[in-house]
Design a protein around this nucleic acid. Structure first.
Lengths: 337, 337
DNA sequence: CCGTCCTGATATACCGGTTAAGCTACCGGT
DNA sequence: ACCGGTAGCTTAACCGGTATATCAGGACGG
């Protein structure tokens, strides 16, 4: 199949490339009749602009980039990113922007990717996820001048615009819910401590617990079921184990559930369990898991709209998405006094 | 940050663009001394080739495409694709090929994407997954002449090279394992019937069951936990319900497990459960799930190598990856006679 | 001493778009 | 009859690479 160029169209229409370009881009400079003729020929030939030529000419590639730096083992089970991407796509496809998606291993490799993409003009902008404390990617991206939208946290995002949900408020919500049920010993199995969202959640969790005069224990884990299970075992070994545990993702919550049950304890009678980030899994297991639910695709779509605006030189402000709602299921109950 | 071009390098080195191009590409036509000088200047300036310019010039974009047409809800929970992509990346990154990743909704939208990508020369090749019976994408891609590697099934792939695992053999393996445990009433909760791999699995399952003189029941589902649960309830309602069920993915197996247990039956004492496609989930739940395990990242890497070869005009033959192994866990046991 | 070959470069065209500048024919106004 | 303005094109340059043809100059053979 021969892929036609504007030169082919021009020849057929008996005009020059420039006229064809004007016609196809809705620019003035051609009569309505020639424009119509050209459009029809383009249609017949099934013409589409060569992306490389256009990119070379106007300096934009029509591609956004997303790099995720997490072990594939975790990624596999985490619905979050797939849903995020799905939401982004919905928004990007209508603007005919494509998404370059890569998994990197380690911050150095990720930084290198950004450098290459930018230097090679492969992408017009990127989404930055899993923001870390003292994240070296932020100054790098600012330095490069690569249009970036941070997904997830306005803290530590420097001058980069962010799209976020209020994790602090969500943590408060969960603590207040559990305290309201009479729980006095709370625990949280967290994600990696170097992520900003982990810190934000932990800080808020600790602060509200203190305010209510209840205890709060934290164990760091890495989102995998193995760590989730181990962290739970550690919590249960304490002389006065917690009566309610909040896990930073659904996979660890599920692992925790299993560990608690195997330890001969009942959920929720002995231990209440809450998952941060809802999924089909949470509804599926027995007992079903109380979870913080948010519209992740909508979040992705929001981020995509922001990045599109940014590449069009719109000045952006941080945008907060609706707070998650706490979906109460069978894994939480009032503490048995 | 000003991104340097070969013209900048040429100016600094006091030579022409062409000389720079020769030097950087290892072509003859420059002396070793000038080549060294040019390389060093390029290094200092942090030069990287503009991908659009290169693509325009040599006609290849350095990008492969992957389109997945499944509801985001399913995708989220399925580790398969993330692992597949992860494996592809490993192979692609060393050749500096990027991956354009999109979720489409429906075959028409997907076909349209291929047309656009090809017409716009956005991609040099694509991976085709979830091959269907009478799949219109196959003739389309053949027609376009878009280099394609089919991931998953050599049946119905037409002239397109495939990378596959022997699903028929795997189905046999499971049936023989279950029959060996004394099961006489088998069932399978399948994925969508219009997928080739579903048909291949079902046909093999039915054939081997017949050969061993045991009964085989099939219920179609769509990989979601909802369907998995419903299919299981349907199976259990039968006058003589199956004593062993094979599910086409881990999510449905887990849903099935829950349904069986809530129905007051024991797993594996009353019903044995096997999942097609292993994951952390399978190890995690109680009882842990017997599953067909395969190295999905390796599968992805294999596919990537094939597509790379294909775009270099190497003639390919279908490539079969190692068969999955059956990982025996707690969800299967001998039938109680 | 001249023609030939080889080396190391330059000049230039090309890929397929976009776009500024230039040209022409036709219009209305005085 | 002459002029200015404009609609409707064309010409040509440019984006940043790659590749082919050309060219200058030195070495070499006869």
């Amino acid at each position: 199949m021969k892929r036609p160029t504007i030169a082919d169209i021009a020849r057929r229409a008996g005009v020059t490339k420039a006229a064809v370009s004007f016609a196809l881009n809705g620019q003035p400079g051609v009569s309505e009749s020639t424009r119509g003729r050209i459009m029809q020929i383009a249609e017949e030939l099934g013409w589409q602009p060569n992306s490389a030529a256009r990119a070379l000419s106007d300096g934009r590639s029509g591609v956004f980039g997303l790099v995720i730096d997490r072990p594939a083992s975790t990624l596999g089970v985490e619905p979050f990113f797939m849903q995020l991407i799905s939401g982004m796509q919905a928004e990007l496809s209508r603007e005919h922007i494509a998404l370059l998606f890569t998994m990197a291993q380690g911050p150095t490799a990720e930084a290198e990717l950004y450098r290459e993409w930018w230097a090679q003009r492969r992408v017009d902008g990127v989404f930055l996820v899993d923001l870390q404390i003292n994240d070296s990617r932020v100054p790098l991206l600012e330095d490069l001048g690569l249009p970036t939208v941070v997904v997830g946290s306005p803290r530590g995002s420097g001058s980069l615009p962010a799209v976020w949900t209020d994790d602090g408020r969500s943590a408060e919500m969960v603590v207040e819910y559990l305290v309201g049920l009479g729980h006095r010993r709370l625990a949280r199995v967290t994600g990696m401590a170097h992520y900003w969202h982990t810190k934000i959640r932990t800080d808020a969790f600790a602060a509200v617990a203190r305010r209510h005069g209840v205890s709060a224990t934290f164990v760091e884990a890495d989102y995998t079921s193995e760590h989730g299970a181990e962290a739970t075992r550690e919590l249960l070994r304490a002389p006065e184990p917690p009566t309610a545990i909040l896990y930073d993702n659904d996979v660890m919550a599920l692992a925790g559930l299993t560990v608690v049950q195997r330890a001969g304890l009942r959920v929720p009678a002995d231990v209440s369990i809450v998952a941060w980030e809802d999924s089909a899994l949470c509804e599926l297991v027995h007992p079903s898991l109380t979870a913080l639910h948010r519209d992740i695709p909508a979040h992705g779509a929001q981020a995509a709209r922001q990045l599109i605006a940014l590449t069009r030189h719109v000045r952006l402000i941080d945008l907060r998405d609706p707070s998650p709602v706490l979906v109460r299921r069978a894994s939480t109950t009032a503490v048995d006094t």
